[in-house]
Design a protein around this nucleic acid. Structure first.
Length: 224
DNA sequence: ACCCAGGGTCATA
DNA sequence: TATGACCATGGG
């Protein structure tokens, strides 16, 4: 069940975004573990601040589950300071690292099915649907479509969705409207974010960012 | 001074 | 199930 999205339009929007912005080469990060850390730290946070926090971890040779679990939580929180919510993020990162290590790390987790991985990730306190899907798609290269606020705004503006549907409902709808291809899901989500960021630099805002005014770049991807 | 960012949890009704 | 409070830095 669940409603169906017009496949042709979903693909058309993707092609126009890709033509306009070019390949985004996501996720920014050297290793799968760094990608996972970034996924947690970027929760409701501007990416630039996440980069500073990750730089702190790197500068202290702490970008590994072992080191993150070894240092004092207060120390970890200090390094995470620039990314905001540093106390709760220190706790979430530790929760994640405990789970990650207990399961045997990346090589062991790579053998899990996508459904098993997703279920297990969601059971970690601090990992919600979007963070789990970021990790699945960008660290494990699994074919899941990440739903974030930008995604809702984009497709709502295009008239394809209402915008307040449940996360799982939208994820399934988007996945069904495209070929099951991790590379496409990867690029699509990255392009949606790139578009939102682009417009955010052009104040006053467009609907893709804050629903206030039509944006100058709207014509770039078209409204239909 | 205000708005918001590549969310998630928990308490409450 | 559905809101609301809370977490907190930094750029526009």
């Amino acid at each position: 069940m669940g409603s169906t999205l017009p496949s042709r339009r979903v693909r058309s929007i993707f092609q126009r975004l890709l033509a306009h912005y070019g390949p985004q080469n996501w996720w920014p990060g050297e290793t799968p573990f760094e990608i996972m850390v970034g996924a947690v730290l970027t929760q409701n946070t501007a990416w630039i601040n996440v980069e500073r926090a990750i730089a702190n971890l790197n500068a202290n040779a702490a970008l590994s589950p072992e080191r993150i679990l070894a240092v004092e939580p207060a120390q970890l929180a200090e390094w995470l300071h620039p990314s905001g919510y540093f106390n709760i993020k220190a706790k979430r990162l530790r929760n994640f690292c405990r789970w990650y290590q207990a399961q045997g790390g990346y090589s062991a987790l790579s053998l899990w099915s996508t459904d098993q991985l997703r279920h297990a990730l969601l059971a970690v306190n601090g990992i919600g649907p979007e963070t789990a899907d970021d990790i699945l798609l960008y660290a494990f290269e699994r074919p899941v479509f990440v739903i974030d606020a930008y995604t809702r705004r984009l497709f709502a503006r295009m008239g394809l969705i209402q915008g307040d549907e449940g996360y799982e409902h939208l994820r399934r709808a988007l996945e069904r409207s495209l070929d099951c291809d991790a590379a496409v899901f990867n690029e699509y989500h990255a392009l949606i974010v790139a578009h939102a960021k682009n417009i955010c630099r052009v104040r006053p805002y467009c609907k893709l960012c804050t629903f206030r005014k039509a944006c100058p770049s709207a014509a770039a991807i078209g409204n239909d």
